[in-house]
């Protein structure tokens, strides 16, 4: 008894550009990821000092979610446990793992060690928006739209969640991509694998 769910917002950060719902929000070519993310954060007028403490994976996922939800999400219509997060990537937290491991040659850094888990980005987003619902971090070779669609649909079908942020957040050196969708029970664009693919390739800048 599959019901209909909807993609109510999308955000893609790749190739030094940020698209929301297919519209270019920000672009700054030639910058390294670290500087690009900070530049985007400042340019978007965001104010969340913890952003500076995060590693690149968390910054990418946090920033993507911030823009995904801005003017598109009415937090008051959900209880904290009704919104969840289902993310995936290929290389887990390997980008930060190597940075942490470098510090073990002298003084191991607890501030970096805490980011050596992929689900920390889910924690950062949850703290920011007070989301307490179901979440999961999956590791796939490539973005698996069919799996994410089916898994999130299952969570919504069984009323485990009422709204879900889902997608792909990957960082390895200067190769990165965030692809985030907001899925809710009311909207106009059906939450289908076909539509996910359409948005994924549309902004694959």
């Amino acid at each position: 008894m599959s019901k209909e769910y909807y993609i109510t917002s999308s955000c893609t950060i790749s190739n030094n550009s940020i698209h929301k719902n297919g519209v270019l929000l920000f672009e700054e070519k030639g910058k390294e990821l670290n500087n690009f993310l900070i530049s985007a954060y400042k340019n978007m007028g965001l104010n969340y000092p913890k952003f500076y403490k995060m590693d690149n994976l968390s910054r990418l996922g946090w920033l993507g979610t911030e823009l995904l939800l801005k003017d598109s999400f009415n937090k008051d219509s959900y209880r904290p446990e009704e919104t969840g997060i289902v993310l995936s990537n290929r290389n887990s937290s390997f980008d930060t793992d190597t940075r942490y491991f470098e510090t073990t040659r002298a003084i191991p850094s607890p501030a970096l060690f805490v980011y050596t888990l992929p689900n920390i980005v889910i924690g950062e987003i949850s703290i920011r928006h007070n989301f307490k619902g179901e979440h999961a971090f999956f590791i796939f070779e490539d973005f698996d739209a069919a799996f994410i669609q089916e898994y999130v649909e299952g969570l919504l079908n069984n009323s485990i969640l009422e709204a879900c942020i889902c997608g792909w957040v990957e960082v390895l050196g200067n190769e990165y991509k965030a692809f985030l969708l907001l899925v809710e029970k009311k909207g106009s664009m059906a939450f289908t694998t076909e539509n996910i693919h359409k948005i994924y390739y549309q902004n694959n800048g």
């Binding site: 904290p80 446990e81 997060i85 607890p110 805490v114 920390i120 889910i122 924690g123 950062e124 949850s126 703290i127 928006h129 007070n130 989301f131 307490k132 619902g133 179901e134 979440h135 999961a136 485990i160």
Partner: peptide
């Protein structure tokens, strides 16, 4: 089975 998040602190 069920999963939740504290939305409080990362460590």
């Amino acid at each position: 089975g069920s999963v939740s998040n504290d939305a409080n602190h990362i460590s």
